[in-house]
Write a protein that binds this DNA or RNA. Structure first.
Lengths: 144, 144
DNA sequence: CCGTATCCCCGAGGATACTG
DNA sequence: CAGTATCCTCGGGGATACGG
């Protein structure tokens, strides 16, 4: 059993098929700092390198290149070079990249719908005072 | 404009509502190394601490505690202590935690359906030989 | 049984400078 | 314009030991 492997509940894809490893993979891809922003920018058609750079606030040249390479490697994005002067490179979602948009949007929408509830929960959790006493192994401990 | 802010495409939730920040938040939560495994384990009812620990291969005591605290803080999981001897603590998905299951499963299923295609794409990308020559600014450069 | 406290390592990612 | 190359920082997360 590999590290990080878990016994998945019945309604998850069979673990033997590598379902949870596949999930880890795609989560490592879209869970990183920039991939989703890039995918979002490419959702409505091809974009050039600097077009992406300008559209994604805060991203460095380095991370844009690196993330695009990763997406390209995984077959989610295509890279097309035009040997013009000055050079021009277009990035575009592949068909697979397009299909990823559906589950990703479901997550984005969930996040959007529940952000207030999460913020509230955090507030309550953080504001919660330490209990005056705790009961451990049948013994009461008071706070001083 | 905050760092990491992007202009979202039209079909994404309005950025002004914090849609992309909310997405960042939820992605930071479920995108980490263990949260999904825990949520998966809790999908079919409450589980005890060590039950989770045994079920999730490779997780350390520390990370289980930390991740559970994070999930609890965000209102996705409840923690219930029973002051018995020995002590017993149950963790359970909240209603909000349950609703998260839907978009997450969509992603898990996508990962499952496309893992082969991704593996293939990677193979092709990694096997791709360096081009014998490149054309830059209208000039041919040969490889040595 | 259910945690904290410490120490430590490694890699994601930022800043900056240079290049075809 | 579209990248590399280099250096450096910072925090997620592992290992281990201890505590109620």
């Amino acid at each position: 059993m590999s590290p990080g492997h878990i016994a998945l509940p019945a309604d998850m894809p069979a673990p033997e098929t590598g379902g949870c490893l596949a999930t880890r993979q795609i989560l490592d891809r879209i869970g990183d700092k920039w991939s989703l922003y890039i995918v979002a920018m490419l959702a409505h058609g091809p974009r050039r390198f600097n077009e992406l750079k300008r559209g994604i606030d805060g991203i460095s040249q380095r991370m844009l290149t690196l993330t695009l390479r990763g997406l390209e490697r995984d077959g989610l994005v295509t890279r097309t070079m035009y040997p013009t002067i000055p050079p021009r490179v277009d990035y575009e979602l592949t068909d697979m990249g397009q299909t990823l948009l559906t589950p990703v949007m479901a997550l984005v929408n969930w996040a959007n719908d529940n952000q207030a509830a999460i913020a509230d929960a955090r507030q309550r959790f953080d504001d919660k005072p330490e209990p005056d006493q705790v009961l451990i192994q049948g013994v009461v401990y008071e706070r001083r």
